[in-house]
Amino acid sequence: MYRDPTKRQRKNLFYATMFVLALFAFDYFSGGAIRIPVRSTGLVLWGGANNVFTRIGASGFFATRAGLTRENKSLQERIAAMQGELAAARAASSRMKELEAAAHLVATTPGVSAPVVSSLRVSPYGTFYIGAGSKDGVQKGALVLSAEGFALGRIADVFTAESLVREFFAPGEKIEAIVADRPVSLSGSGGGNAKGELPRGASVEAGTMIFARGDRVHAIGVVGHIEGDPTSASLKLYVRTPVNLETISYVYVLQ
């Protein structure tokens, strides 16, 4: 008997769709039972790949490839080795500075410092992982600060040894903020950027610090650019996170 393969494939796709929806529903109602193994496996994969890329970068292979064809091979290898050592020393020094700053925060506010264990720019939801969880006393909703004391986001999910942080300026995220003593509603666009509108006449300039409502201690952003034509009743604010998200390797979680 002839069976139409198209019909069978379509039926399989329908079952797969139902299965995926059922998995997501189960995860939602069980409070994240399925995502726990997915996250630990994903973080192991990310850690491994990150190690490989870091080693390739530190080896200077791509930086000296063109030069190797022109210059003496042994001399180039020596230069590459020295560059690798220099890059490693710089990275260690930068990490040390971040830890020193975090140590200063520890002395003034109770909390826990944690390493960033995933990429800060890959997530479509403006999230990233840190290597501290419920066993370290991290709680859902806790404020996450950079080593310099700027607020980056809040803890969205807590697991045993790691936590998921959602950035204030995640794509689509709305946040009520204060800029130059005026309330403003900011809408996140991802990558540490946000937009908002202020009434004309507000004394705001590029570089003005922005705070979340209810917390005047930790700035969440800084005004990067102001736009508005003279006939308009409002000013358009372009806001960014004061720290470069891609270079952060440690954060501080308030308790």
């Binding site: 379509r10 796709l13 797969a16 995926v20 929806l21 997501f24 996250r39």
Partner: peptide, 30 residues
């Protein structure tokens, strides 16, 4: 008719989205 596309989207959502957040990747892929 790739069921892998659905699972790829589901894995992205489970890994990156907070619990309770709308799974945009999965919905978009369906």
């Amino acid at each position: 008719r790739a069921f892998e596309a659905l699972f790829l989207a589901l894995l992205m959502d489970l890994f990156w989205s907070p619990v309770g957040h709308l799974p945009f990747f999965t919905i978009g892929t369906i």
